[in-house]
Amino acid sequence: MEHTTQLVPLNWYLLLSTFLFCLGVMGVLIRRNAIIILMCIELMLNSVNMLLVAFSSYSGNSDGQVFVFFIMVVAAAEVAVGLALLVSIYRNLGSTDIDLLNKLKW
């Protein structure tokens, strides 16, 4: 291919998804609202998904895309259960602040 230099190197995808993953980690650490924490977990899952798609596309093997499909399935189930838990927590405490949930803290 003559226009190979014009295409995106794989390293850029590695950098982007690493950055997004670390951003998700930071969000989980600094936020106190449990809904935002769930959203940051979604962001981390998405960065991993993007990396899997990039590797699968660059290596010409579609196994990675099927795995991304299953990760999406698990993420959807996780969000459904997590939000149900949050609604139940809100009903008992009147807030979704995770600093209020310190009964198991030593």
Partner: peptide, 15 residues
Amino acid sequence: LFLSAMIGAVLLAKK
């Protein structure tokens, strides 16, 4: 997995 997630969500969010 979806079926169990559905049942779990309904059970958890029920009053």
